[in-house]
Design a protein around this nucleic acid. Structure first.
Length: 569
RNA sequence: GCGCCCAUAGCUCAGUCGGAUAGAGCACCGGUUUCCUAAACCGGGGGUCGCAAGUUCGAGUCUUGCUGGGCGCGCCA
């Protein structure tokens, strides 16, 4: 669809004498009944000192005759263009089928590296539902960037260093039980942590002991490190189980602990910069850029390092290793200031790559804080999603040959993931089971179902026709043309999503395509002549080719979002 | 108190660089299937875009103020 849009912009540019890029920026996608592309002529009119309607009329007149377009017409101050649908169908359907799994992919960014920091949970606590956003937005951005040819380095930057683990280790030394840890895993650690954080408040001396324990860890004391290592390994094992369910993977799993030895160098480097000073025994960097802003702390008064210190070291190390074009941090909006300070501190140290770092922030999920503010575990949500999907499947008459357990897992997980990614990442959203698993609305299930139906029809129809076997000029129904255009918009949405770091752009385009498919598929119920599997070879083969293209496009779109694609439901 | 973000249909949300009659989904009402899986489709009602000014040929979109909400404000991550 991008090349048609570009062609329209070039046409209009030639017709008006304005630069192509300027025109391209003005082109809009109008309401469907106005056409496929639209050019508002207001700013051109100002430049040409004519009325917008006159400009539109002149541009339309000079832009006639291009083979892509069935009509280009001035409507008031707008130039509206409608694609030649036969041509679009004849080009898009074979192209999608030829590309197959490479649909919507390109090599345009080959050689450029992008580092994406996502998920990044703290160890010793189960993954909470609140980890879903970072994990799935990051996963989708990683997949989208890979599709565009980037070398993607997905980093799971574990919160595995800091006073918290001193607290936990101290608690384990006092009350811990190795057998219980082996059996209970991460939930035992959580119990221990809860007890420890109470003790830190109520038991005199405990907090200081925890602090001292973390210092022992920083100094490499064998017992302290042994405890920490065991906490970390138990945590990773359980995280991995959930990542597998979500189809999430990383190129790199490291953590703040990676930088525990590099701290002195970072601190030495930054301590020479203006604005660094000691304050009440702690090392801080003044942030003189904003009024009343607290300084960034590099070192506590007891000598231990902080999150910010380790993040500086990690950022430098990432640039040294990967020479990234972009370095993305998929982290909640509440850390906006932290990343702002991080970048400014790096810049002050002379690291210009700070300008390539982007905090991909996201809003909060409301409506999931049951049980008095306790965190909801991600695994429980995924389990409930599966159960709900299973219950829904059992309601329907199921004489199909599917494995309900496997499919309900895919539908449940897909529903939760799609339900997250369809929202603008910056905005808070309200979690609601009805919005997640409703087969009608703007949901993952709806798109998955559309994909499964494509697969089903292809199975019944004896598979997709070979290349060249289908005469696509047979596809002329309005539902068919709308479907082809819906598919064709997906690659543009992938580019858009990468540029804006906004997976919801893709989620919307994929849903639109699925909806166009449902409409087409449904039209066959009312009018049998619109069915795919009709008598008459020419029409049937052409439609099977269209179904195949639809299947490929939906599958790729869902795949880039990290949503599973069952072939039968 | 200071800083940042947000406010659009009964509910949940889109609306990308300021452009045409502000769009989806849910819910509600009414229809559609002797079905290639109805986990679907179509139609309808429903909006002073929080309030008030301003900039502009044109404002949901930009500016200012106000109201209401969220988040953040040194030894947590």
């Amino acid at each position: 669809m991008k090349r048609y849009e570009r062609a329209f912009a070039e046409l209009a540019a030639n017709a008006s004498g304005a630069p192509v890029d300027e025109i391209a920026a003005l082109v809009k996608i109008p309401e469907p009944d106005r056409g496929d592309f639209s050019l508002p002529c207001f700013s051109l009119a100002k430049r040409l000192r004519k009325s917008p309607a006159d400009v539109a009329r002149d541009v339309a007149a000079a832009a006639q005759g291009h083979p892509f377009f069935a009509s280009i017409a001035a409507v008031g101050p707008y130039v509206n263009a409608t694609l030649d649908s036969a041509r679009v169908v004849a080009e898009i359907v074979p192209e999608v089928r030829r590309l197959g799994d490479r649909f919507a992919c390109s090599e345009a960014r080959r050689g450029a590296a992008v580092v994406i920091d996502y998920s990044s949970p703290n160890i010793a606590k189960p993954l909470g539902f609140h980890h879903l956003r970072s994990t799935m937005i990051g996963n989708a951005l990683a997949r989208i960037h890979r599709a565009l040819g980037y070398t993607v380095v997905g980093v799971n930057f574990l919160g595995d260093w800091g006073k918290t683990f001193g607290l936990l280790a101290e608690a384990f030394e006092r009350w811990g039980d190795a057998g219980a840890l082996e059996k209970g895993g991460i939930s035992y650690l959580l119990e221990l942590y809860v007890r420890a954080s109470h003790a830190a408040k109520d038991e005199p001396g405990f907090d200081d002991a925890a602090r001292a324990m973390f210092l022992r860890q920083e100094e490499g004391d064998p017992r302290a490190i042994e405890l920490w290592t065991s906490f970390r390994e138990h945590s990773l094992r359980e995280f991995e189980r959930i990542y597998r369910r979500l189809g999430v993977s990383f190129e790199l799993i490291e953590g703040e602990s990676t930088y525990r030895d590099g701290m002195e160098a970072v601190i030495a480097a930054i301590a020479q910069k203006p604005g660094t000073r000691e304050d009440q025994g702690a090392l801080v960097v003044d942030m003189p850029y904003a009024e009343g802003e607290p300084p960034m702390m590099l070192k506590k008064s007891d000598g231990a390092t902080l999150y910010a210190t380790r993040d500086i070291a990690a950022a430098i190390h990432r640039f040294e290793r990967f020479h990234f074009e972009k370095s993305l941090y998929v982290v909640g909006v509440e850390q906006t200031r932290h990343f702002d300070q991080l970048k400014r501190a790096l810049r002050a140290m002379g690291h210009d790559f700070a300008d390539r770092m982007v905090h991909v922030s996201f809003g909060r999920v409301q409506g999931m804080s049951t049980r008095k503010g306790n965190v909801v575990f991600l695994e429980e949500v995924l389990d409930e999603a599966r159960e709900r999907a299973l219950a829904k499947m059992r309601e329907a008459e199921a004489d199909r040959e599917i494995d309900p357990e496997a499919v309900s897992e895919q539908v449940g997980v897909g529903g939760v993931v799609f339900g997250d990614l369809k929202n603008l990442r910056a905005s808070d959203y309200t979690f609601d089971w009805e919005d997640i698993l409703n087969p009608r609305g703007f949901t993952g299930v709806c798109v998955q179902y559309a994909h499964a139906r494509c697969c089903s029809i292809l199975r019944k129809g004896g598979g997709a026709p070979g290349e060249g076997a289908a005469d696509l000029s047979a596809l002329a129904a309005s539902e068919e043309i709308a479907l082809v255009k819906g598919i064709a918009r997906i690659p543009s949405a992938v580019l858009d999503a990468a540029e804006a770091l906004e997976p919801s752009r893709l989620a919307r385009a994929v849903y639109e395509a699925a909806h166009a498919w449902n409409r087409y598929q449904q039209a066959g119920n009312a009018d049998r002549s619109l069915r795919v599997l009709v008598d008459g070879n020419r029409l049937r083969l052409a439609r099977l080719a269209l179904v195949d293209a639809t299947r490929i496009a939906l599958r790729k779109g869902l795949d880039l979002l990290g949503v599973p694609t069952p072939e039968a439901m």
